[in-house]
C-alpha cells in the first residue's frame, strides 16, 4: 500500500509542529483489527521486566481486564536501541497527551515514527476532551526509586524505572538508554499559570484499551505503575497490588508506509550516521555546516 499524496494532511490539528499524515491508511488499519489474528497474548500480573518485540506492520493491543492501571511504555528500534522514544520532541508535535493517531517519535538522526496509536478507547470514544484533565500523558520518567521513597511508598516495590532497567539488562542494554516514557491510562491535569502537571485518578474502566501499530521492528518495554490508577498517594499503597494488563500482538496488518513519505523534505542523514547506518559516536561537530 503506497502513499497517495492527495490523502496526506498535516497532523495533529492545532500543533505548531504538525507533520504529514496519511489518515486513510490508518483508518484502513483500524478496519482490519477485528479480523486480525493474535500472535501472543500474555497477561502482565506483576511489576517486572516486560519486553515485547513487535515487528513492523504488527499491532500491540494493551487492554485493562480488571479496571484502571497506569501502564508506562518505552520503545526503541530493535536493531538499533539508540533510536528510541524522544518524548521531549514528540510533545512539540503531538502535544502532551496521546490519543488515536498520535505517533510515537524516535530520536535523531532518523527522527521517524516508531509506532502510531490507531485505537484509544478512553479519550475519543467515551470522554472526549475534558477541562479537568486528559489521559495518556507523555512525560513519564518520574517513576524512580528516589521519587517512590520521597513519596513515602512502601519498601520492596519495583518502580517503573527499575522495571525498565531490568528489562534492558535482560537484553544486555544499559539503563542509561532510558529517557522519558509515556504513561498510558494515566490522567493528568495541567494548571495553566504554574504549569504544574497533576496526576488525577484515571477514568479508564475494565475493557479500555489502546492499540499501537509498529512502523518499524520495535521492542516495547511495559511497566505496571505501582500507583495503580493514580487515585492514591504512595504512602497509602501498602499492600495494594497492581491490576493485570493484557498484551496482545496481532499478525501483520499491513506494510508500514515508511518514513519519510515521498517528497517530504528530509535532511542528509550521512551527516549523522556512520558506515553501519547508526548514529555516529565520534565526538565531532556536524560536518559541512557554516
Amino acid at each position: 500500500m503506497g502513499t497517495d499524496r492527495d490523502r496526506i494532511t498535516l497532523h495533529p490539528p492545532g500543533s505548531a509542529h504538525a507533520r504529514e499524515f496519511d489518515k486513510p491508511f490508518y483508518e484502513g488499519l483500524r478496519g482490519r483489527l477485528a479480523e486480525a489474528r493474535i500472535r501472543a497474548a500474555p497477561t502482565l500480573r506483576e511489576p517486572g521486566a516486560h519486553a515485547h518485540d513487535v515487528q513492523a506492520g504488527e499491532a500491540m493491543i494493551i487492554r485493562l481486564p480488571e479496571g484502571a492501571q497506569i501502564v508506562n511504555l518505552f520503545v526503541f528500534n530493535s536493531a538499533d536501541p539508540d533510536e528510541r522514544l524522544w518524548v521531549q520532541d514528540m510533545a512539540l508535535t503531538e502535544g502532551v497527551f496521546l490519543t488515536r493517531y498520535s505517533r510515537l517519535w524516535g530520536e535523531m538522526a532518523r527522527y521517524r515514527p516508531l509506532m502510531t496509536m490507531i485505537e484509544d478507547s478512553v479519550t475519543p470514544i467515551r470522554l472526549g476532551p475534558s477541562p479537568g484533565g486528559r489521559h495518556h500523558f507523555i512525560f513519564g520518567g518520574s517513576g524512580t526509586p528516589a521519587d517512590w521513597r520521597y513519596a513515602g511508598g512502601p519498601p520492596d516495590v519495583l518502580t517503573t524505572w527499575e522495571q525498565f532497567a531490568a528489562a534492558l539488562a535482560e537484553r544486555g542494554l544499559p539503563a542509561s538508554l532510558l529517557k522519558d516514557n509515556v504513561c498510558l491510562f494515566q490522567k493528568v491535569g495541567i494548571d495553566g499559570p504554574t504549569q504544574r502537571f497533576e496526576i488525577l485518578p484515571s477514568d479508564a474502566v475494565t475493557g479500555d484499551f489502546v492499540t499501537l501499530f509498529a512502523e518499524i521492528d520495535v521492542t516495547v518495554l511495559l511497566a505496571l505503575s505501582p500507583y495503580v490508577d493514580g487515585s492514591r498517594p504512595a504512602h497509602r499503597l501498602t499492600g495494594v497490588s497492581v491490576r493485570p494488563v493484557e498484551v496482545s500482538i496481532t499478525d501483520r496488518l499491513a506494510e508500514p508506509l515508511g518514513w519519510p513519505y515521498p517528497g517530504y523534505p528530509y535532511p542528509d542523514l550521512s551527516l549523522y550516521l556512520d558506515e553501519n547506518g547508526v548514529r555516529s559516536a565520534e565526538p565531532v561537530p556536524t560536518p559541512g555546516l557554516d
Binding site: M108, E282, V284
Partner: peptide, 27 residues
C-alpha cells in the same frame, strides 16, 4: 568536551517563552 551526538539528551529551554495549553495539551 569529548562527547558525541549520542550523548545529546533532554534539555532545558532558556529565554524561551512557552507553555502548555491545559485544554488542548499543545504548546
Amino acid at each position: 568536551l569529548g562527547l558525541s551526538q549520542r550523548d545529546i539528551h533532554d534539555n532545558v529551554n532558556l529565554f524561551y517563552k512557552l507553555g502548555v495549553d491545559p485544554e488542548t495539551g499543545h504548546y
